[in-house]
Nucleic acid binder design. Structure first.
Lengths: 154, 154
DNA sequence: GTGAGAGCTGAAGTCAGCTTGAGGTCAAGG
DNA sequence: CCTTGACCTCAAGCTGACTTCAGCTCTCAC
């Protein structure tokens, strides 16, 4: 871990695939850290690459940066995270993934039955009107499983 | 289809689950239309409910409003869309759904092997570093299948 | 005919997650 | 030493999909 091992932002850009602007943004937001040279330029430890990979995967399944930060904050402060530290984090979003897959599959199945049965009547089709009681509930999407109520972000 | 059949915006809110503001926004954006009373209030035909259901489902799988509008524009102009019109539209995003499911499953499998094998070394793990050539490609996500490169919208 | 609640408009605001730009500084090969 | 390309900061801008607000008008049951 001598100075030799530190990465410039350009190297991190090349090796992580994130643009400069995103790396600086993530630093401002407290997701990653960097030391500085005497001249003020960033120098990253190698470990940042694993963090960035984690961030990318988390983002890909729709987890917001706030939550990603919380997850990363749960990594041990003093020492380099071990395998089991990362495993614990990863396992936590494995559940999310399962939920999302399940939800998409449910949507697909509903769609299949729609296409197959030709029932496209609002009154009968499970997809268009899942249980004849649409509109009786609270805010947000009504015909989708919970895990799919997030994607339309706004 | 006499006047009696037209819905007020409040009724559409109740039956579609979309808030007033979204309905007006969709109208401005050309996704749905409404006739007006002499006093200028909106009156919707029943068919709007099916359109809105379509919009919601499309949004749920991450399709943007622009593309949803294009899809809806492909519906026949003069007549009420038939079953096969809707079927055609739906079939087109069924493919998307398949892609997304496939991508998420791939991510999950990668994650499984990571958790299982304890390989969390950046150099070897398929999930963290899928083919040892990370960083050699163009913009955007590198460790995810194409269909997952969209979700982090910004 | 009237009061209350439903509806109207246009402009501005919000949120996430960055990107872009201007204007200047640092680091290192020759 | 000098040049050149990498890097810096701060502020503002952007996209998508809406929401919120102010201030006013319509509709309809009584």
């Amino acid at each position: 871990m001598d100075t030799h091992d530190l990465l410039t932002i350009g190297e991190v850009v090349d090796r992580s695939g994130f643009p400069h602007s995103a790396l600086r943004y993530y630093e401002r937001e407290g997701l990653v850290t960097a030391t500085r040279t005497s001249g003020g330029q960033r120098r990253y430890e190698r470990g940042v690459l694993r963090k960035l990979a984690f961030i990318r995967a988390a983002r890909a399944i729709g987890i917001g940066l706030d939550e990603v930060r919380e997850a990363l904050d749960r990594l041990p402060a003093g020492r380099t995270p071990t395998k089991s530290d990362w495993t614990r984090l990863s396992r936590s979003w494995r559940g999310r993934l399962d939920e999302q897959i399940e939800a998409l599959v449910a949507l697909r199945d509903g769609l299949d039955s729609c296409i197959g049965c030709g029932c496209l009547s609002l009154a009968r089709c499970r997809l268009w009107n899942p249980d004849d009681r649409i509109g009786a509930q609270g805010d947000g999407a009504r015909l989708l499983p919970p895990a799919l109520r997030r994607p339309p972000v706004g």
